[in-house]
Design a protein around this nucleic acid. Sequence first.
DNA 1: AATGAATGAGAGTTCATTCAT
DNA 2: AATGAATGAACTCTCATTCAT
Lengths: 208, 208, 208, 208
Amino acid sequence: MGTLPYKRMRIMSNQEKETELPTKSDRRGELILTAFRLIAEKGFEGLRVRDVAQQVGINGATLHYYFPTKEDLIQAVVEYTIVQLQNTMKDLDSSGSPSEKIHTHLTRLLQLMHEKPEIFVVLTEISLRAQRQPVMNYLLQQNEIWQGMLAGILREGIEQKTWPEDLNPDDAALAIVTILEGASLWAVSDPSRGERAVNQLERWLGVK
Amino acid sequence: MGTLPYKRMRIMSNQEKETELPTKSDRRGELILTAFRLIAEKGFEGLRVRDVAQQVGINGATLHYYFPTKEDLIQAVVEYTIVQLQNTMKDLDSSGSPSEKIHTHLTRLLQLMHEKPEIFVVLTEISLRAQRQPVMNYLLQQNEIWQGMLAGILREGIEQKTWPEDLNPDDAALAIVTILEGASLWAVSDPSRGERAVNQLERWLGVK
Amino acid sequence: MGTLPYKRMRIMSNQEKETELPTKSDRRGELILTAFRLIAEKGFEGLRVRDVAQQVGINGATLHYYFPTKEDLIQAVVEYTIVQLQNTMKDLDSSGSPSEKIHTHLTRLLQLMHEKPEIFVVLTEISLRAQRQPVMNYLLQQNEIWQGMLAGILREGIEQKTWPEDLNPDDAALAIVTILEGASLWAVSDPSRGERAVNQLERWLGVK
Amino acid sequence: MGTLPYKRMRIMSNQEKETELPTKSDRRGELILTAFRLIAEKGFEGLRVRDVAQQVGINGATLHYYFPTKEDLIQAVVEYTIVQLQNTMKDLDSSGSPSEKIHTHLTRLLQLMHEKPEIFVVLTEISLRAQRQPVMNYLLQQNEIWQGMLAGILREGIEQKTWPEDLNPDDAALAIVTILEGASLWAVSDPSRGERAVNQLERWLGVK
DNA sequence: AATGAATGAGAGTTCATTCAT
DNA sequence: AATGAATGAACTCTCATTCAT
């Protein structure tokens, strides 16, 4: 099957529906988006508030009008990033067979990985940081919620004989999450990598 | 199967045989080890040459005698980290069935993840950085070599009917690599996470 | 005699009669009073126009409608502070013996030091600043006027044989002023200090 | 008696004997002295570490090599200032009648006020600050020690009938201290002020 | 009268690096 | 091999002030 020239199944893009965070007209949103982009580009290591301000076209002091400290700006980027991902979790609540739900969810994640690969790279940056700076625990919670939802669907599928009884739903959910975390690392430099790894995962799960 | 109270199969520890890089007596090695530890602890974002020097007990200026620039020190840490991992790749060349080779390899990796989880976290830091700073291409090459060796063994196993013909060895190798990369993210804060994910992987591969 | 549980002689409080500066309803007055309080609390070193505005409940920019510059605000505080003190100088013009005048005057000053100790601390801040920023010369003039009035009364008392002929009225007036300046330093943190020092002074002067 | 063209009684100057703090050759001392001078000149309000560094002829960053923070530098200035004053307290332990001790002590203080008037202005700055920043409590302790020593000598003099029995030694000591605190305020701009006030004080005490 | 947004100038502090010894 | 001292460049953040509305 290989690397698709991307278009598995057409699902309405996240970009099309989201109305959440930053409207282009508001400064706060611009700043978050710019900081987000710079983190994706240079990592936390290379993030400079002055660069963010400059790219938005405002004075460095003005940035502090919106975000008192650099850390506040980063926190906003974290929230923005998580919200982007939460949208893909809605599929797990939708109607359909367990197998379909998983497939739809993974498909949307891959689609997002093509459209906005930065999200996944930033996510990796954030995850690394979250283990050091306990302020970011919010991310860890979200991660567990996601994993829990996946395990629930797998459990449901086991009851319905979609998957064999000896499949451990928790471990399988963890494997799914882990593969996506691994894929996130390369989202920007080689997004097809994630796609191929997830394809293989889906074959193992038989959701495809 | 859950989280084993760690000891799957006794393989001689990496720590026991390695003689490679830093002998305790030499300053250069001490500095690399200390920088390595600090990167694991605080990320590249939080690495300060002054801290490295101080923890080794020397003056900050003296560090520059051994490593002219910070980047030189980082490069040495990268090499040290990769060497640690290369040791686990020797199993892939050893005798035994393809299935056994894969299992032995994964087992040694998990063992290392328990003994020196920092290696995996630093690896993630390095991988993120490698995509921005082309100086680190060496890492990417190693990654491809590893992936190629795994694919070769899988291909061998398919010929020997260990695995079905429709298994794509490249995708499966990528999935293995990807799951380990995902597990690396949590190696320090929750090493059992990696273990459970790899266990599930091994069940899918039937190498267990 | 020690520290009186304050109430030496009942003199109508300054607070009761003053009608001068800030009516509660006007913003300008509120700002002056707030700035005054903040200077007493944190010194000129710690005075921030933003804090003044915020405590009054207006925007920082609005403050500049009332006081174009920070220095203008400070000047208003200086005037407010001096006016508060000038009220105590009226006693020096009143009827009565020289000895009584001095006593009444000092009593009212101590009363004020208990009721509004901030005035004296701010006065010290201002006096220090006045020696550097010649804009504040007004304060120095007032100081000399006060000292002159005291010397005049002493001179009057010497003629009336209240005090011995060899008392230098100028030096004695200066000593009175100086002791009150010294007492001002501690007005907020320990107002009884000033009272005890002035009591001793009055014993030396025999006005008690 | 008026304002003497200064020379009451020749006492060996403090400057001549002190060997304590800053030798001109060492940077740390230079920085303290320069900061001290700048505080006398512009107050804490106007103290800028960059100015200190520049006047010493070093880079602003180098200052932080000696004093990690501005507050550390200020603390050193406080200690320097207090040490200067402590030298004058030695007279209080010397031999001689109570009256002579007091006179010698006050004379040395006036001498210092002429030679290094900045000490007294900085002292006033520090005293104001000490009531806000409890880190500076050391100053308050010194103040109480000084006052206690004066009271002790006065008490001794009362026993020896130098002073009348109804003199309250604590209040008189406080008055002495207070007059010197008041005189400190003008030490730089008009040092004769302090001299005249202290002269008057000495006449009241009869130590002259 | 009042405000949100913006700014320039500058504050203290950090950090990798250099250099004379 | 090692260090204390020094530095330039950069960093985040502060603050009085301005301006359009």
